[in-house]
């Protein structure tokens, strides 16, 4: 066992962990941050996505001991702490509670079972940090490491568009799907 010092959602958390402890195990079992989901546990599904220095990575394949000193953001830390405290007040409005991407997922109904949602929202948040008006193709690419077993992708993509419009102060309008690329000429099986 080793004492680790992790910066999780803005707080420094000290805990004892074995060298083989993954970030997912530490977040869920030591810190109680169960918003980070365990799906396949081998890098296929994206349910355990967290942000490491703002970049989406998979907590199930990250050794906790190797991310000390780096900024780890889970779904619990997405809305700033002062807003979460504010939300505890009885007069808090909905806007006091959540991050805009979380709000957009809520408004677009972008969930069915909800299991993939925290990973989806974190991947989407990282995308909107680097591109405030992403095309539908860019959104699909950015979320391509997050699987939704309910196949609710349409509303999820719409939610990301909604969040980007909201952030930029634009009126929300659903984007068109890109036309599939035309077949190259002269195709043959042999």
């Amino acid at each position: 066992m080793e004492v680790l010092s992790l910066k999780v959602n803005g707080d420094t958390r000290c805990l004892a962990a074995a060298p083989q402890a993954t970030l997912l195990e530490v977040l869920r079992e030591e810190l109680g941050l169960t918003g980070c989901k365990q799906g396949c546990d081998k890098g296929d599904c994206g349910a355990c996505t967290v942000l490491l220095d703002g970049q989406p990575v998979l907590a199930c394949l990250t050794l906790a001991a190797l991310v000390q000193g780096r900024e780890i953001t889970t779904i619990e830390g997405l809305a700033p702490a002062h807003r979460r405290r504010c939300a505890e007040s009885p007069c808090a409005s909905k806007q006091d509670k959540l991050h805009p991407v979380q709000d957009a997922f809520d408004e677009a109904g972008a969930l069915q079972c909800g299991f993939c949602q925290s990973g989806m929202i974190l991947s989407a948040t990282a995308l909107l940090q680097r591109d405030d008006d992403p095309k539908r193709e860019t959104i699909r690419e950015a979320l391509s490491g997050n699987l939704c077993r309910c196949t609710g992708y349409t509303q999820i993509i719409e939610a990301v568009e909604r969040a980007s419009d909201e952030h930029a102060g634009r009126e929300h309008r659903p984007r068109a799907w890109e036309q599939p690329a035309t077949e190259p000429a002269g195709e043959g099986e042999s």
């Binding site: 890098g43 998979l58 490491g145």
Partner: peptide, 9 residues
């Protein structure tokens, strides 16, 4: 190669 998360790692 794989997904955005895995390419970052």
């Amino acid at each position: 190669v794989a997904s955005p998360q895995l390419r970052a790692m």
